[in-house]
Nucleic acid binder design. Structure first.
Lengths: 211, 211
DNA sequence: TCGCCTAACTAACGATAGATAGAATGTCAT
DNA sequence: ATGACATTCTATCTATCGTTAGTTAGGCGA
């Protein structure tokens, strides 16, 4: 394939100190995230990751104490990335932006994180349901922190109705995440997707009890 | 645990011919579906299935030629079950039912199939993304046939707009399926879920271009 | 120059997976 | 009673997994 001829030894430690061409652990995480995203959790072995990184499997253990630790690191970064992106985008809005304008922005950024911006976020969404329960639990704090952002945003759509909010938060995030399973940004326009999905969800959330 | 002490030999073939207490292959598929639903694809081994069925692993090979074949059978039944349920429910509606009444019915039945009615359907949704591509491909014909029902239903929400329809069909199905990952029918009321989800989606789909 | 740190290597282990071969068991029609 | 069939068994194989142990080689500070 493209990478990794193990007979060619990578010549020793890094010379560059200030240039930092992506630290090795980061590079390994990049590869892991891309493979998890493409092929799922169980289908990706440490051998696969090591091969693409140009090293032997046990060498990975110098950078990560176990496969679980590597996976947890990738998963947590996946949520951190999208949370920071959404937070920044919301902060860039005018302070008096309407609740539904904020919602639309958050949806667009979330979709962009899933489809192209971050292999980490898409890997997280893709493999979360495949992980043994222990690993899933390790990702829950990050997920809950991210959900709080959406709870803030969505509370404007159903004020004083916590039961409705408790359903709408995971429903909206889940509906957005589900696009990962069928939408291919290489074959369709991501902006069109965001327009269509945003329109349906925003209109649906805007609808008042009385119609 | 509850089932299967292999030292107690199950006494030979079935006597009952007309009574049919669920044919053995069906019983095995039931167990497989339940386990796949609960723990995902990779986490369920043939040993696990055999144990719960009260037999040794190789005995499974008398009924199914391989694990792949068993999985494919479970997956296909998962779609078949929900498709038949939706088809029947739609047929039971008055012939002059409005398009959005049909849509709401389909959504309710689909949610019910996911949460309780059928381990096959929930197993399908749960593990589809975990399967190697070859197995996923084997389930595509069933899935496409089921999607056609929804294409019919949803075409009323965006007449003469095939691009929009091509997005709305997988989006709606995906949004419904995603509830499997966060909604627990033991802790929440399924009817409440259907009310809330149905309201948002139906209102969103009803919204006209001009607002 | 010496010794430590970094970063990789080779070799191997134990566990578990799906799968196969062939023997054994019980039922039933003849 | 017997032979055919259906069903499950035991025993074993091969492949692959994550992981550990111990080793090697280069760069850098004292």
């Amino acid at each position: 394939m493209s990478a990794a001829d193990p007979s060619v030894k990578l010549s020793a430690p890094r010379k560059t100190k200030g240039a930092l061409p992506a630290a090795r652990p980061d590079q390994i995480m990049d590869i892991a995230a891309r493979q998890f995203r493409a092929r799922g959790y169980a289908a990706v072995s440490l051998r696969d990751i090591a091969t693409e990184a140009g090293m032997r499997t046990p060498s990975l253990y110098y950078h990560f104490p176990s496969k679980d630790d590597l996976v947890i690191a990738v998963m947590n970064r996946g949520i951190a990335v999208v949370r920071e992106a959404v937070t920044e985008a919301l902060a860039a809005l005018p302070p008096d932006a309407e609740p539904f304008a904020k919602l639309e922005t958050a949806m667009r950024v979330h979709l962009r994180a899933l489809h192209g911006l971050s292999d980490y976020t898409s890997a997280n969404v893709r493999i979360f349901g495949q992980l043994p329960e222990e690993l899933r639990r390790a990702n829950l704090p990050e997920r809950r922190a991210y959900q709080e952002i959406w709870a803030d945003l969505l509370s404007a759509t159903c004020p004083d109705n916590l039961e409705m909010l408790a359903i709408r938060v995971p429903f909206v995030i889940g509906a957005l995440n589900a696009t990962l399973e069928w939408f291919d940004p290489d074959r369709g326009d991501l902006d069109v997707l965001a327009d269509q999905v945003g329109r349906v969800l925003l209109a649906g959330l805007k609808e008042r009890e009385d119609r």
